[in-house]
C-alpha cells in the first residue's frame, strides 16, 4: 500500500496477491463453522436477487462470497451487509450449488464481533442487550432490552410512544421474569465465554 502513514494511496486497482496463510486459515475456519464451501459458488446472483435486505447492503451476499473467494478477508469482515442479514435463509434455500450462504453470513458476523470490527453498532447493541437479559434472568427482559438498547445507541426516546400502549395492553412487564435455573444459564454463558468463540 502507500509508504508513509497518512500519505495518499497510489493504487489504481485491487492488488490481487497470493492468499496469505492467515487469510486461508480464516476462510477455512469460517467454512467449517458454517458447514459449507465457498468454492462451489459460481456467482450466479440468485442469493442477492432473493435477499430482502440486499437493497441496503454495501456488499450483498454474492459479493461477500466473491471477496472471500479472492481472499479479500478484510473488506468482507468490515462490510455492513453481514450485520444487515436477517437470517431469513432465502439465499440458502434457492442457491443452485447448495452453498449455505446464511450460515456464512452468520459466521462472518460472529468473527467480526470477535475481532471488534462492528460496522453496525445498533444491531450489535441490540444483540448485546438481548443476551444480557437472558444471562441474568434466564429469559428475555424486554423492558430492560429496550432501555439498554436506547441508551447505548443514543436514541433515548426511541419507541417511547409505544411504551405506554404496550403497558396498557399487558404486553410488557417492568420487572424481569427470573427462572429457577438461572445459575445454570449463567454457567452456560461463562463456559461459552471461556471457549472464546472456538467450537
Amino acid at each position: 500500500m502507500s509508504g508513509k502513514k497518512g500519505a495518499k494511496t497510489v493504487e489504481t486497482a485491487v492488488k490481487l496477491t497470493p492468499i496469505t496463510e492467515s487469510q486461508k486459515e480464516f476462510i477455512s475456519r469460517i467454512e467449517k463453522e458454517a458447514g459449507t464451501s465457498i468454492h462451489l459458488c459460481y456467482q450466479c446472483g440468485k442469493c442477492t436477487a432473493g435477499c430482502p435486505a440486499a437493497f441496503a447492503m454495501d456488499y450483498p451476499p454474492r459479493k461477500i462470497i466473491r471477496l472471500l473467494q479472492l481472499g479479500m478477508v478484510d473488506t468482507a469482515i468490515n462490510a455492513e451487509s453481514i450485520w444487515l442479514c436477517a437470517s431469513c435463509e432465502t439465499c440458502t434455500a434457492r442457491c443452485p450449488k447448495g452453498v449455505n450462504i446464511a450460515s456464512l453470513m452468520d459466521a462472518m458476523r460472529r468473527a467480526a464481533l470477535k475481532q471488534g470490527k462492528i460496522t453496525d453498532k445498533k444491531i450489535a447493541a441490540f444483540n448485546k442487550g438481548f443476551l444480557s437479559g437472558v444471562k441474568n434472568f434466564g429469559r428475555t427482559y424486554e423492558a430492560g432490552l429496550t432501555l439498554q438498547y436506547n441508551l447505548s445507541t443514543g436514541q433515548l426516546f426511541k419507541d417511547m410512544a409505544l411504551g405506554l400502549p404496550m403497558m396498557n395492553r399487558g404486553k410488557v412487564s417492568i420487572f424481569p421474569e427470573r427462572i429457577k435455573g438461572r445459575d445454570e444459564v449463567k454457567k452456560i454463558f461463562e463456559k461459552v465465554q471461556q471457549l472464546g468463540g472456538e467450537e
Binding site: 456467482q43 450466479c44 446472483g45 442477492t48 436477487a49 432473493g50 435477499c51 440486499a54
Partner: peptide, 11 residues
C-alpha cells in the same frame, strides 16, 4: 426478482 451481477445491483 433478479440481480444484474455485472452492475452489482438487485433488479
Amino acid at each position: 426478482k433478479t440481480e444484474d451481477t455485472l452492475l452489482g445491483m438487485p433488479m
